[in-house]
Simulated scan of single mutants.
Amino acid sequence: MLIFDADDTLWENNVIFERVIDEFLDWMAGPGLDRAGVREVLDGIEAANAVTLGYGSRVFLHSLRECVERLRGRAVTAGEAARISGWAAAFEGDGVELIAGVAQTLAELARRHALVLLTKGDVAEQERKVAASGLAGNFRGVHIVAEKNVATYEELVRAYDVVPSSAWMIGNSPKSDILPARSAGLNAVFIPHDHTWVLEHAEVDPKDAGVLRLSAFGELLKHF
């Protein structure tokens, strides 16, 4: 069984957040606190909110508002709130941008293997992206979870009655895709993405024989 991450593995995602963050840093940086300092505060707020509120654009916009309040030591003004709300448009729309080679590669792999999609985040938001991608027909199941941890992977292989060592998790995030899957006994395919969210970064043991490293999605056809 091949299990696929969605955001930044099948389609572009974090680059959209980074574009908004870039504008936010320009707005908030000033005397006494540069862009790097603002980003450090925002990263800390996002990390805390991910634990209590989860993931997705609504939580992200909430984090921007909280960051403004923390940095300015007061509640946001109506104008500031409107500016933050305006960034919601960046995450709306009926389409997604597939990463190169994804559609063709998944179609071929689906003829050879059982494929499953595993993604985390806001259910409605992720369902919209899955539908917009046109890829759902390749998967035997689509699972949207609050968090991707060891228990998530253990539950998934049990649900499909699969021996963990015969399953592969494929994704771009060391923290959510690679490390917990390996801890649950699955193999993993690590396909790095230039714009992986900073909070998803972690070290992957280069000596771990259970992790296959690829530079492009289409290379999966050489191995599966």
Results as ranks from 00 to 15, higher is better:
79 G>N: 04
99 I>A: 12
175 K>M: 15
122 D>I: 08
101 G>K: 02
92 E>T: 11
162 V>M: 02
129 K>L: 10
120 K>P: 07
141 G>F: 02
134 G>T: 11
174 P>V: 08
84 I>A: 02
99 I>W: 10
150 V>Y: 00
135 L>D: 10
83 R>N: 05
172 N>M: 11
94 D>S: 06
156 L>P: 06
78 A>F: 11
99 I>C: 11
138 N>D: 08
126 Q>Y: 05
102 V>Q: 12
83 R>G: 09
143 H>T: 05
139 F>C: 04
152 T>N: 01
84 I>Q: 04
88 A>W: 03
86 G>L: 09
162 V>A: 15
164 P>F: 05
136 A>F: 04
139 F>G: 07
98 L>P: 04
88 A>C: 02
161 D>M: 04
174 P>N: 10
138 N>E: 06
113 H>C: 12
95 G>N: 10
123 V>E: 07
86 G>V: 07
171 G>S: 07
157 V>A: 00
92 E>F: 09
160 Y>L: 09
159 A>L: 00
106 L>C: 14
100 A>M: 11
108 E>R: 13
121 G>I: 03
164 P>M: 14
131 A>H: 13
173 S>F: 15
125 E>V: 13
122 D>Q: 03
171 G>T: 07
160 Y>D: 01
115 L>H: 06
79 G>D: 12
169 M>S: 13
112 R>Y: 01
107 A>Q: 11
177 D>L: 03
150 V>F: 00
131 A>E: 15
95 G>E: 15
117 L>V: 01
137 G>F: 03
127 E>Q: 15
141 G>P: 04
82 A>F: 03
105 T>R: 07
149 N>S: 07
79 G>T: 05
80 E>W: 08
97 E>Y: 10
111 R>Q: 15
156 L>D: 05
177 D>K: 04
150 V>N: 02
91 F>L: 08
162 V>N: 05
98 L>K: 01
169 M>I: 13
116 V>G: 11
131 A>C: 09
129 K>W: 14
125 E>Y: 05
78 A>T: 09
171 G>M: 10
132 A>W: 15
121 G>M: 02
166 S>M: 08
160 Y>S: 05
158 R>M: 01
153 Y>H: 00
168 W>Y: 12
171 G>L: 07
146 A>M: 02
101 G>W: 04
170 I>C: 10
153 Y>R: 00
88 A>T: 03
102 V>F: 06
140 R>D: 05
81 A>Y: 04
107 A>E: 13
132 A>V: 14
87 W>M: 03
95 G>K: 15
165 S>W: 11
114 A>D: 15
81 A>R: 06
162 V>L: 09
142 V>H: 08
106 L>H: 10
142 V>N: 08
108 E>V: 14
91 F>Q: 07
155 E>L: 01
147 E>C: 09
144 I>R: 01
167 A>V: 08
118 L>M: 02
114 A>K: 13
113 H>A: 15
92 E>D: 06
98 L>E: 08
176 S>K: 13
172 N>Q: 14
123 V>Q: 15
128 R>Q: 12
153 Y>V: 00
176 S>D: 06
157 V>K: 00
150 V>A: 02
82 A>K: 10
114 A>Q: 14
128 R>T: 08
146 A>L: 03
124 A>W: 11
